[in-house]
Structure formats: C-alpha cells, structure tokens
Computed example of a mutant assay.
Amino acid sequence: MPTVCFCADDFAMNPQIDQAIFQLIERGSLQATSCMTQSPLWANEALKLKQYATTIDIGLHLNLTHVFDAQTFSYPLAQLMLRAWSHQLDKTLIRKSIQQQWDHFVEVLGQQPHFVDGHQHVHQFPVIREILIDFLKEQRFKGWIRSLSHTVNIAPYQFKSQLLQMLGAKRLTRLCQEANFAQNEQFAGIYDFSITHYPNLCQQWFSHAEHQLLIMCHPSIGIPDTPDSIYNARIQEYNYLTSEQFFHDCTNNNIKLGRIGGYNV
C-alpha cells in the first residue's frame, strides 16, 4: 500500500489559503503544509498551526520571488533564474534571507521545520541549493527536503514536469545524499493551474504511486484581496480535498495517507 502525502504550499500567504489549510488538516486531507514566514500574517497564524505540529509535517517554504513588503529580499522568477544559472547571486544576501526565514519559523513554533522546500522550487536552483545545504548542515537539520527527482509525468503536463525536474533536482538530490538529508521518493501535483478536472488528475497520480509520493497542492477557500493568478485552481483543489469523493478515491486506489517524516525534529 503506497503512502501519499498531500502538502499544501503557501501557508500564511493570505487568510483564504490559511482557512482552507486548517479545515483540510482537521478533515485529514492534508499531511503537511509549507510556510511563508516573511508574511505579516505568519506570527498569528503560526500560533494556530502550532497545535498540529505532532500530527502533520510543518515545513519552511523558502521564498525568494514573492514580495510581501518593501523589506522582502526577492527577485522576479525569470531574473532569479538568470542570476542563479550565471552565478551572479549575492551569496551573503541569499544566506541572510534563508537565516531570517528560518529564524521566523523557529521563533514562533519553537522547533525546526520538519522539512524545507522552495516557493516556485527555488530551493533546487544553483547557488541557492549549495547555500541551503550548508546552512542546514550547520543547523544539524534532521528533517527532509523536497525532491523533484522522480516526478509523476502525466499527459499533457509531461514537459512542465520534466522542465521543473531539470531546474536542479538531480544535483540537489546528490547534495542531500552526501549530507545524509532525507527526501520524498516521488513527487506529483504539477499541472498548468487551468480549470481542469482536478479529481481526474489526482486519480492519475494515485495510479503511479509506489512509496512516499508527495503531492504538492495549493488550496484556498475563496478569492483573496491581493492578486493571485491561480486562485481558481486553488478553489477547485479545496473543493475536491473536502469532498467525500477524495477519500473514496484514496480507498479505491489503495492509498494510505501519511507523513513523509520529521517525527524526531
């Protein structure tokens, strides 16, 4: 029986996302969530999230592209990619941002993250991944790091899956192996965020599940006050994950919902 972990990204990005995540945790649909600790919502929302630290994996969603305020260190995604692959990133500033986001997490939750990943997968980019791994070694990190090395490729999203995989997944996996950091074995949740039949996508991902399949999701209960280009997709994900069909689909595909790890952090 394969284990599947649904991880909701973007905790603390906006209230609608946070409300969806809390409801889905209570319902048993989520086994992990990944947090944006630079958000002005973080401190208050994290205090509510803290009660679930023994039942789900709570991770750090490393952010270098989303702007929360004038103090946020970030680049537009295309510019960050150009700077990363041309090795023009300021290593001191990257390290400082990682440290600050980590400290915000630990200060409120009183523990290290169960795992680390990246908003728009920036944690696997050149320069950033090396700085991150060195930082985590210094922290004696005991959790896991999101891997895209073995993505579940389904039509018509094979190209996007392969592209994301090519953006540093294999190199990050080698660095994790050298540092003895655990990772998820499979990864899914990649599509174009258009209005599609999300339950069908999940059933296809389920059919490819072998062991420790991490499915990235982005649920929300409604339209936020701030711009969000994928809010329609967020709502359809939430609707499915709150439905009885979701649990029927898990049962029918012999899926066990469970955490990736992080129990001893």
Rank of each mutant, 00 (worst) to 15 (best):
M1W: 08
C7R: 15
A8I: 09
D9S: 04
F11Y: 15
Q19L: 09
Q19R: 09
Q23G: 09
I25A: 05
S29N: 08
Q31S: 15
S34R: 09
W42R: 10
W42G: 03
N44Q: 14
N44W: 02
I56G: 15
I58R: 07
I58A: 03
H61W: 01
L62D: 04
L62N: 03
T65W: 00
T65A: 00
F68I: 14
L77H: 10
M81A: 09
M81Y: 03
W85Q: 04
L89E: 01
D90P: 11
I94H: 00
S97G: 11
I98Y: 02
Q101T: 02
W102N: 01
W102I: 00
E107Y: 09
E107K: 13
V108Q: 07
F125G: 06
V127Q: 12
I128M: 01
I133Y: 06
I133A: 05
L136T: 01
K137L: 07
P156C: 11
S161Q: 14
R171T: 02
T173H: 11
R174W: 05
L175F: 06
Q177C: 10
A188F: 06
I190D: 02
Y198H: 11
P199T: 03
L201C: 11
S207M: 14
H208W: 00
H211V: 10
Q212V: 02
L214N: 10
I215S: 04
I215M: 05
I215T: 05
H218V: 08
H218P: 12
G222Q: 09
G222A: 13
D228A: 08
S229G: 09
Y231T: 15
R234A: 00
N239L: 15
L241Q: 06
S243K: 03
S243C: 00
D249G: 04
C250P: 00
N254C: 12
I260Q: 14
I260S: 09
G262M: 03
Y263K: 10
N264Q: 13
